[in-house]
Design a protein around this nucleic acid. Structure first.
Length: 483
RNA sequence: GGGUUGGUAGCUCAAUGGUAGAGCAGCGCCCUUUUAAGGCGUUGGUUGAGGGUUCGAGUCCCUCCCAACCCA
């Protein structure tokens, strides 16, 4: 039995399981109605009270006749005590052989140890599930990124900080739904499999429907279906679900990601900016306990604080550029290119003039903007499908919300002219890659009310609100290469 | 796709080119209020994979795999 390479550790646990079975105990037991979660039982602790509680063993302290173990679940931890003289010999043997990782259920009365620790004095216990593999170190947790992402369950068991991030994400998503519902928005579900992957410019994943013998794409955005619903008479709709983009993977990109899109009839981008501002602040207050969002490093030191306090700054794209280089729009395109290169920006030879400016924007404005900033009056080349500004045909009726150095949310005054929309989509499609969604254009011809629309990248929002540095830390099962 | 860094026991980490180690976990013994329990003893390794250089490679070189970060 003196063995401890992995397969030997497993063999030891299998032998324990066989011993359980031999003594008539099912190592994978049945339901165990408890008095609540571990946290609830701990919170309602009262000396002398008899309780039933179930959880995973996270520590085992063997003191001979006195056996102590920690029982844990997401809600908390409670200590269990068992006295070898108070149970049968066989039962005591079974208890002593329990492993860290096993699920058990316990019944007994509450008491305080000499050290004052609330403890359940077990009179009965049941093995609910034998764990056949050793769990990660209880003290150091899981540090290996591959284990964290490929075997998230181990990360969740071992790392309380990870658990906290995902609990926060769940609450953020719930509060978004609550907020929008309270504002009169209806949540809808539109196709994830689309014959034309529209609503954004991105490479789609392709699939095939056998019975219909039809190629389909996983959606890159729900936009064109949500707009059909505006045509159909929904005044305020939203969808909060997955989009899929067949593009690179990085600290900020996962092939499937969660997006909120919301549309409000008779509104515009400015009204939608107000809505987003109110929503994000409302969520932060409920989930983060305030509007100052602290990001900490691995040592727990605060490395940056994002101030969400309203009103959020709004500034025109061109003014932000002038804030970096005052004479930017007075000099020639060639001079702009030279200035950008001189500033250390990586400008390719084929970059258009507006792309040079955008590059400057990304490096010198976006990446440095931590507190919320609505960028308005974006150049029309950057957002080809948006409505042009009435007073300035070079800019569009769009905001881009930047927080934490990233684009978090765009907002539009949606284009509802079917003739202009058709022309733009045809220009955008160019070749075969982006087919035009004729069914969408058909719907527009029946009349879509002017509307404000927004998108919010939920993963990035959660990163901002939790201080996660990688999108992989806010997605339970991020995509990795096959091992 | 390019660059940089990394991959050593179940977990967290050491190891000038010279006998692969520690803590925790595991296993055995002792212990009736411990709590990162403690004491004594003890097992466990194809050092990501494959080549090469060398008397000798975890360490140096090459190819490949996986990951993290930066860039595109």
């Amino acid at each position: 039995m003196e063995q401890s390479s992995l397969h030997e550790l497993i063999a030891v646990r299998r032998q324990k399981l066989e011993k359980l079975n031999a003594s008539g105990v099912d190592g994978f037991g049945a339901a165990f109605p408890a008095d609540g979660s571990v946290g609830q039982v701990a919170a309602e602790f009262a000396e002398g009270k008899v309780v039933r509680v179930a959880g995973r063993i996270t520590a085992h302290r063997n003191m001979g006749k006195s056996q102590f173990l920690d029982l844990s679940d997401f809600t908390g931890r409670i200590q269990v005590y068992l006295n070898g003289k108070e149970v049968g010999e066989e039962e005591f043997t079974i208890f002593k052989q329990l492993d860290i990782g096993d699920f058990i259920g316990v019944e007994g009365e509450c008491f305080l140890t000499k050290m004052g620790e609330p403890t359940v004095h077990a009179r009965k216990f049941e093995v609910l599930s034998k764990s056949l593999r050793p769990l990660p170190d209880k003290w150091h947790g899981v540090a290996d990124a591959e284990i964290k992402y490929r075997q998230r369950y181990l990360d969740l068991i071992a790392n309380a900080e990870s658990r906290a991030v995902f609990e926060k994400r769940i609450r953020i998503v719930r509060e978004i739904r609550n907020f929008l519902e309270a504002k009169g928005f209806l949540e809808v579900e539109t196709p994830m499999m689309q014959a034309v992957a529209g609503g954004a410019a991105a490479a789609p994943f392709q699939t095939h429907h056998n019975a219909l013998d039809m190629d389909l794409f996983l959606r890159i955005a729900p936009e064109l279906y949500l707009k059909r619903l505006l045509v159909g008479g929904f005044p305020k709709v939203f969808e909060l679900n997955r989009n899929f983009r067949n593009e690179g993977i990085s600290r900020r990109h996962n092939p499937e990601f969660t997006m909120l899109e919301a549309y409000c009839a008779f509104a515009d981008f400015s009204i939608m900016a107000d809505l987003v501002e109110e929503m994000v602040c409302s969520i932060a207050e409920k989930v983060c306990g305030g509007l100052a969002i602290e990001h900490r490093n691995a040592e727990g030191e605060v490395v940056k604080t994002i101030q969400l306090a309203r009103p959020w700054r709004r500034a025109a794209y061109a003014d932000l550029i002038r804030g970096v280089v005052p004479e930017w729009y007075e000099i020639s395109p060639e001079e702009r290119r030279a200035r950008a290169v001189a500033m250390g920006l990586d400008i390719t030879h084929c970059a258009e003039d507006y792309e040079v400016t955008q590059h400057l924007f990304e490096k010198c404005v976006e990446e440095k903007t931590m507190d919320p900033l609505f960028v308005t009056h974006c150049p029309k080349e950057l957002v080809p499908l948006a409505k042009l500004s009435p007073g300035n045909p070079e800019t569009v009726e769009v905001y881009e919300l930047v927080i934490n150095g990233q684009e978090i949310s765009p907002g539009y005054s949606e284009l509802n002219d079917p003739v202009v929309q058709r022309r733009r989509l045809e220009e955008q499609s160019g070749g075969e890659t982006h087919k035009v969604d004729e069914e969408f254009l058909l719907a527009l011809e029946y009349g879509m009310p002017p509307a404000g629309g927004i998108g919010i990248g939920i993963d990035r929002l959660v990163m901002m609100l939790t201080g996660a540095e990688s999108i992989r830390d806010v997605i339970l099962f991020p995509h990795l290469r096959n091992r």
